[in-house]
Simulated scan of single mutants.
Amino acid sequence: MRVLVTGASGFVGSRLVEVLKDKDDFQVTGAVRRQVVERKDGIKHINVGELSPDTDWAEALKGVDVVIHAAARVHVMNDVEADPLAVFRKVNVEGTLNLARQAIDSGVSRFIFISSIKVNGEGTVPGNPFTAEDVPTPIDPYGISKMEAEAGLRDIASGSRLEVVIIRPVLVYGPGVKANFLNMMRWLDKGIPLPFGSISNRRSLVALDNLVDLIITTATHPAAANQTFLVSDGEDLSTTQLLRRMATALNKKAFLLPIPSVILSMGASLLGKKSLSQRLCGSLQVDIDKTCSLLSWRPPVTVDQALGLAASYYLERKNS
C-alpha cells in the first residue's frame, strides 16, 4: 500500500513516517514544505510548498492509495493576524479540500484527516466526556476551521469512491513535544515550586505513539471507512497527577504548592492568561469506547511509558 503523509516534518507526521517505513505492507512518501530529501533510510520526501487552495499535489499523489493529512496551520496562542479565522480557513479548509479533490482525481481510496478535539469544544464537566457523535461546538478559529474542513471532506467524498476517516486527537505528547508540555518538564527539572498541588480536574491526553498506532490502524481497517474517532491514552489525569508522574519520569521531586484552582483561575484571568488557566485547571475528557470497539484497538503505550520516552528525549538534549 502506498501512503502519502502530509506535514511529514511535523511532530506527528515525522513520527508517523518513521514508523511506516519499517512496515512491510506500506510504501511511504512524505510531503513537506521546504525541501526535497531522498533520505538514506529510503523515505522519499516531496516538496509541495505551502498548504493552500492552489497547491499542486500531482507528483505527490502518483500511485497513492491512502492520504494521511497531518499538515495544518496549528493553533496559535497569541495570533497576530488581523483576521485569524480567514487565515485558518485558507489553509485548513480550502487547502485541505483542494488536496482531497486532487486525491479523488488520482484514484486515492482513503483520506485520513487529522483533525482536533477542538471541534468538539474547549472543555467538559468531569465525568461527562466528549464523544465522536456529539454536535460540534468549536470556539476558536482553529477549531472552527477544522470543523469546516471535516464537513467539506464529507461533502466531497459523498459523490466519489473516496473513504474519509476523521481522527480528533486531544493534546499529543511524546519525544520532542513543545509548548506548555515542554515548559512543565523544564520547570520540574529545575525544581521550581509550582502552584498546582490541588487541582482536581480531569484531562485526556494521547501519547504520540498511541496516536500514530491508531492512524496506521485506520489506514487499512474496513470499519474505519467514513467514521470519526476520538483518541486518548485511555487514562485521564488531573494536572497535579500529571506533574507528579512527569517528575517521576524525570527522576525529580515535584514541588507542588496546594493553591486552590479557583484562586489560580482568578489570578490567570487578571493577568490575561485565561486560556492557559483553562488548560491547567479545566477538564477535557474524551470517550474512546467507539474507537476501541469498532477497530478492536487499544492504546499500546501506557501513560508512564510515554512520559518516560518524552523525559528521556528532553534530558538527552537539554544541554546539547
Rank of each mutant, 00 (worst) to 15 (best):
V93H: 05
G272S: 04
Y314D: 14
P138F: 09
A72L: 07
K273D: 08
L284N: 06
N120I: 09
P258E: 14
V164I: 14
P222D: 13
L250W: 13
V64S: 02
R34W: 10
R154E: 14
S204T: 12
V91Y: 04
V303I: 15
P299S: 11
L214K: 02
A132P: 00
L295G: 07
A100F: 10
Y142F: 07
S275M: 10
C281Y: 09
F26Q: 08
M184K: 08
L171E: 14
R33N: 06
D233H: 01
I167T: 11
L284M: 14
P136V: 11
A8Q: 06
S115D: 11
R101H: 08
G176F: 05
L97C: 06
L214V: 02
T218R: 05
G176W: 09
I139W: 08
G13D: 03
G49M: 12
G107P: 01
K290T: 05
V231Y: 06
N226E: 11
P260T: 05
I144G: 03
N251V: 07
R279Q: 15
F113I: 06
E235D: 07
A179Y: 10
M246F: 03
D25E: 15
K44Y: 00
D140I: 04
V87Y: 01
S158P: 01
A225E: 15
K178H: 14
K318A: 02
T240K: 00
L276R: 04
V64Q: 08
E18T: 09
R279G: 12
V37H: 04
G95H: 11
Q102T: 11
V32Q: 12
S232I: 01
S198H: 10
N78H: 10
G143D: 14
E163Y: 02
T217V: 11
S115P: 09
S109A: 09
N180L: 12
E150I: 05
Y313E: 15
L264H: 02
R89S: 06
D65S: 12
L162M: 09
S52P: 01
V91T: 15
D209Y: 09
T217G: 08
I117M: 10
Q35Y: 05
D287R: 07
S52W: 02
L307Y: 04
D41R: 05
